[in-house]
Design a protein around this nucleic acid. Sequence first.
DNA 1: GCCGTTTTCGGCCCGACTGTTTTCAGTCG
Length: 573
Amino acid sequence: MARANDEAAALIQELADLLSITGGDAFKIRAYEKAARAVAGHPDDITGLDLAGLRAIPSVGDAIAKKILDYTATGTIRQVEELRLQIPAGVRALTAIPTLGPKKALAVYEQLGISSVDELAAAIAEGRLAGLKGFGAKTEENILRGIGLMRDAGERVLVDAAAGVADEVVAALSRLPQVERCAHAGSLRRMRETIGDVDVLAASRDPRPVMEAFTALPFAAEVVAGGDKKTSIRTSTGLQVDLRVVPPESWGAALQYFTGSQAHNIRTREIAVKAGLKLSEYGLFHAGSGELVVSETEEEVYGRLGLPWIHPALREDTGEIEAALGDALPSLVTVEDLRGDLHSHTDLTDGVATLEQMADAAAARGLEYYAITDHAPDLVMQRMTDEKMLAQRDRIAALQEHYPGLVLLHGTELNIGPDGGVDWDAGFLSAFDVCVASVHSHFTQDRRDMTRRLVRACENPHVHVIGHPTARSIGRRAPVDADWDEVFRAAARTGTAMEIDSFPDRLDLPADLVRRAKRLGVVFAIDTDAHSVGHHANIRYGVGTAQRGWLTPDDVINTWPLPRLREFLQKKP
DNA sequence: GCCGTTTTCGGCCCGACTGTTTTCAGTCG
């Protein structure tokens, strides 16, 4: 189901994980991890590559190339299969718990036979970890908190995983002659940051072959329920997909109904009732006679209720009905509105693509400007130096002549230290076109210190954008604690943009904070934070988050023409 | 396991934080 590159990368990463549990050489493990990232980020499909072609991928040598060939031939890697026999999948899953790494996972497995997150939670509750070397009270507490964080994410998946499945289902069903229209709906259409199950809607007069094709999809591992109107499957990754088939004339009403949210639907149905109407997934009807009023398009349904069409990202009953009634809905920013991207990495630091490949990708996106923002020296592991950064600037200047339609900007992603300071002095910083500054450590500072830290970063005259401001990792790391209103006021006052990082596990700022920040006069940058060519596709999720935050193009600095952006980047006195 | 205008061998992702281990291992970015 996933791209071959992603599947091979996942297997290589699993090999690294399993070796780290069984105690392999640390450098070898890192080599696998690096290769996994490189394969996932490689722009060409590995299926068509021979040994030499595979070895041409950076960080892939002879041994890993052969493992990839093993995968393309057999669908798996022999060494992974062998290690899976030694280490149950549940033990590897334990390492997904924050603060619990491979060593502790192996310890609880070998000494207590624990091989799942549930068993571990139960063992802690029963006090069975007491006395185990390396597991004190604080460690237990941290593990329980980590498990809680994972369970809050629950069975939900990140938006990109759901979107990938939905895209494949919609593409497959759309090819059927019986299907007149097909689209995804539900929380995915609203661009929620996590998705519980995927809702797909099809318009057809002949549902049975559609349902049969649906349950015959290669990744349909289990049919949960099957009928003429609704069929549910579970994919091999455990994600449930619901397919509803409706008559073509009901399309608009059904799409409105199945997009939700529940709260939004209740409001629209109330409006219908007050107007003597009844709204269902089959249409808008006269309450008394049952006569159909409208049903073919969402616009007609909303229109007959006295409302303009409401963008799916707004349908949460958080003020969109009132705004619609008052003709005050925002004209939301779209992917097409973006002229540039202000945050990206190359293989000079932790990216996997070269400067040239990233510039090509930006040009392919049709961007007018593109900032390369590799990490700065304070993130010590990235081993940045003044010399490397200056050499990159020269390379960018030389590369520019190849891109008549794309202006390459030289920037950096600074590290916001615990006290709010950043890498480099004012002199060095002032020579960058754009500086993003982000929190990468000391996530647990208390609210007062964290607020002061972020405010100070905003006040730095050379910091233009605060990158992934809450530093959260969905399902893994909680957002940092700060007085966000105070941070946003500082950002507005100092002309500092807040980033919306488009990575599906970040989506940071989150939509609710985006909305709060906008009210306080903040502007935003919707960035990919791309570390590979493929990451540019994530921009749809960043834009979705911006839409959920009610942003218009004017709120987003990278929709602005370059001269206006340059003026903004001049920033403060 | 990968890689090479220091190297085909010997480096590589270092440093800080946390909790517990009384001298440091595990985890993380």
